[in-house]
Design a binder for these strands. Structure first.
Length: 501
DNA sequence: ATGTGC
């Protein structure tokens, strides 16, 4: 494995072939890396990020690698990339937070219901009581009707959002149709193999009962819940699609970002360690000599174990999101009786899926990347979105807004994928050095956006992220997707200096 | 991302 050097080439070796599309050749017979991003965006990719992309592109069994405009360094592969392999699975290019995802709940409320501050404060409190934030945090005072014991926890991991699990947790079962995948199965397409795998893992699953009580919680870092006002665009097509998605112009919606919490973390790190030990023992060369890029050929016990563990974590994340949405709706109903809500969509940006790429089945690893299938895509047949394409949920930042998009046929270029958000511009330490807490808080006050935190976490401030409009411009100019609606924050739930502690 | 250092 020769690791190419990139620093001496102009533009880091990236060759533009359109306003927002480019290629990065990696030498040999390899198809080049597909790069999405305007010139301004392409300048934000640092060397390590590009080296990770090259390592990933030239790794065994990989046929396609897409680098998205929000790309930055990740574990082995960049956050913000798509890696396709018909023959291998790669745990690193799924990531440590298995099935980290976005979901959007459309309520029946008009925007003026969330104007006055006391109502928004009451909503923040009611939501925080039910859906906690923070490391280790889970359900504190869940009512008996929604308590997750060990037995139900096992069912969640094995079945995902099955009818039985939804009923046991008070989740409207029809929401399962509004999921990118409501349930994940094991390596042999059965749930039986997942049950067996979980049984085998149980002795290592420290505090399993405690971890399953994390269902219905956000965790920390960039995870959040956000009350939004939905703003449709001007053109007829986007308004028609927004209607079909069940969005309401000028209505109140709730956007959530979270993943598989402690369970997914334990499953992912367990897989990294197990595979790294085997690579050490076997002395097999790693792509770019990077231990974070361990892999397993399909059909081996190692690949089976990874696919099973990924499915267990993914099922937890799916039910976590659906329960959060059910609990958030309950919180709205406590504060504003009579309000109703429907799940618009639940879609992941950290998962490997079996899809058809270039007419053959392949594992599409999306790491900080979102599936983007347009109207008429064969995989959407029989879903509510066959005629429109499915909703794409892209968090930007509370001040610039977030976006609902829909894929265009041009998304074939990026293996039917787009970015997963704005992407970091400043590392956490750099953000703490560069940004001023009072200015950050003042900017939220000026925009009349409330938060559950006394001080907004500075490393999560909008200025720590790339310019969201430039990122969206890249996606549109590359022909991947169109904007359907913008979401403007009215209040934000984050892990931070909580007002209720 | 994470019972936020192995």
């Amino acid at each position: 494995m020769s690791s190419q050097t990139i620093e001496t080439k102009p533009n880091n070796g990236i060759i533009a072939d359109g306003e927002a599309t480019a290629i990065l050749p990696t030498g040999g017979k390899h198809k080049p890396i597909t790069v999405i991003g305007t010139e301004a965006i392409r300048g934000t990719f640092d060397e390590l990020c590009l080296q990770q992309a090259i390592n990933s592109r030239t790794a065994p069994g990989v046929t396609d690698l897409v680098l998205n405009p929000d790309a930055h360094c990740g574990y082995g592969a960049p956050v913000g990339c798509v890696m396709v392999s018909p023959t291998h699975v790669y745990p690193g290019p799924v990531g440590v937070d298995i099935k980290c995802s976005m979901s959007l709940l459309q309520t029946s409320l008009p925007a003026d219901a969330v104007i006055d501050k006391p109502t928004r404060r009451a909503l923040i409190n009611a939501i925080c009581e039910r859906t906690p934030t923070g490391a280790g945090r889970g359900q504190r005072n869940a009512p008996k009707s929604r308590r997750v014991d060990e037995a139900l926890g096992r069912r969640v991991l094995v079945e995902g959002a099955s009818r039985g699990v939804c009923e046991a947790l008070g989740i409207p079962p029809e929401w399962a149709e509004r999921c990118e995948d409501s349930a994940h199965v094991g390596h042999d397409d059965s749930t039986a193999s997942l049950a067996l795998r979980l049984e085998k893992l149980m002795p290592q699953m420290h505090n399993f009962a405690g971890k399953v009580t994390q269902l219905g919680s956000y965790g920390g870092g960039n995870h959040f819940g956000e009350c939004e006002v939905v703003e449709f665009g001007e053109d007829d097509r986007s308004r028609r699609v927004a209607d079909a998605f069940g969005l309401i112009d000028g209505g109140v919606a709730f956007l959530s970002h979270c993943g598989s919490r402690g369970i997914g973390h334990q499953l992912a790190t367990g897989q990294f360690k197990a595979l790294q030990q085997k690579f050490d023992r076997w002395d097999i060369p790693l792509p770019g000599q990077d231990r974070e890029l361990v892999y397993a050929p399909l059909g081996t016990p190692e690949a089976d174990a990874y696919l099973d563990d990924m499915a267990l974590g993914a099922n937890f994340a799916t039910v976590n999101h659906l329960l959060i949405n059910a609990l958030v709706l309950e919180a709205f109903q406590e504060v504003i009786p009579g309000v109703t809500g429907r799940l618009v969509y639940f879609i992941s940006h950290n998962i490997a899926r079996k899809e058809i790429v270039d007419s053959r089945p392949a594992w599409v690893h999306r790491k900080g990347a979102t599936r983007a299938m347009p109207a008429g895509h064969h995989a959407l047949a029989g879903t509510p979105f066959a005629e429109t394409g499915h909703p794409i949920l892209l968090p930007g930042n509370p001040q610039a807004g977030s976006a609902v998009m829909v894929a265009d046929p041009g998304a074939e270029l990026s293996c039917y994928s787009v970015n997963h958000g704005a992407g970091r511009q400043l590392g956490r330490k750099a953000a703490k050095r560069a940004l001023d807490q009072r200015e950050v808080d003042a900017s939220f006050d000026a925009a009349d956006i409330l938060s559950n935190c006394r001080q907004y976490p500075i490393d999560e401030a909008p200025a720590a992220y790339k310019d969201f409009d430039e990122v969206l411009r890249s996606v549109k100019a590359a022909g991947l997707a169109s904007e359907v609606a913008r979401l403007k924050a009215r209040f934000v739930i984050k892990d931070g200096d909580k007002a209720d502690d």
